[in-house]
């Protein structure tokens, strides 16, 4: 089947989709957006968290056919999404061409330089909340949405909001630090 939907502010189209495919598979394997991660494919880890019509969901549990005509934001579009939010306008996105540049080549650009991150992305780097990073995209989408709803969360609020996102590397302490840091920077207007 064919599906049309919006990803990170851009219309996307996928053809010859098998009816049993998940939104996660379509994003990763058909649209060149592998940022949402495939850690469990049963809604038990949160690594594939995306926003579907604004709501955080596990992309692995959304049937591809269900996203027809709907709006999806992935980690790849998070920085733009946050920028648009702070400007109070609609979201834009990464282009399909950019996104599909994914090839089997090792990256030389591991120098850590990069601009244009959303506050929560920057906080994850600064606080040491990233180790292997496989849980990071899902956590970022979930944490960003929580801070949107609740700009001044206490620790228990953070833990509850992130309780659907497993991390195996960090022991979560640095993730807590990162979300606190993002919240604090936001309240300071940084």
């Amino acid at each position: 089947m064919r599906i049309d939907f919006t990803v990170n502010g851009r219309r996307q189209e996928a053809d010859d989709v098998w009816e049993g495919e998940s939104l996660l598979y379509v994003l990763r394997e058909r649209l060149g957006l592998p940022g949402s991660k495939n850690a469990c494919e049963q809604g038990e880890c949160g690594s594939c968290t995306v926003r579907l019509d604004g709501v955080p969901v596990c992309a692995c549990l959304v049937a591809a056919g269900q996203v027809q005509g709907r709006d999806v934001v992935t980690v790849e579009g998070l920085a733009d999404f946050a920028r648009q939010r702070s400007r109070g306008t609609g979201a834009r996105g990464t282009s399909l061409d950019e996104a599909q540049e994914w090839q089997a080549h090792g990256s030389d650009s591991r120098t850590g330089e990069g601009g244009g991150l959303s506050p929560v992305q920057q906080a994850f780097i600064d606080a040491g909340a990233v180790q292997c990073g496989f849980c990071t995209p899902g956590l970022l989408v979930a944490a960003d949405e929580m801070l949107e709803r609740n700009p001044d969360p206490d620790d228990a609020d953070i833990r509850e909001a992130l309780s659907g996102n497993l991390c195996r590397c960090t022991g979560y302490e640095k993730i807590m630090d990162a979300v606190r840091l993002a919240a604090a920077r936001r309240s300071e207007g940084v």
């Binding site: 592998p34 940022g35 495939n38 994914w102 591991r110 990069g114 991150l117 990233v130 990073g133 995209p137």
Partner: peptide
């Protein structure tokens, strides 16, 4: 020093290519 990860930016933007992200 607590310098930051060189792969941090790629990992928070979803661009870091894990083995399951490989595509050809």
């Amino acid at each position: 020093e607590s310098t930051l990860r060189p792969d941090g930016t790629l990992k928070v933007t979803g661009e870091f290519a894990y083995s399951s992200d490989m595509w050809h």
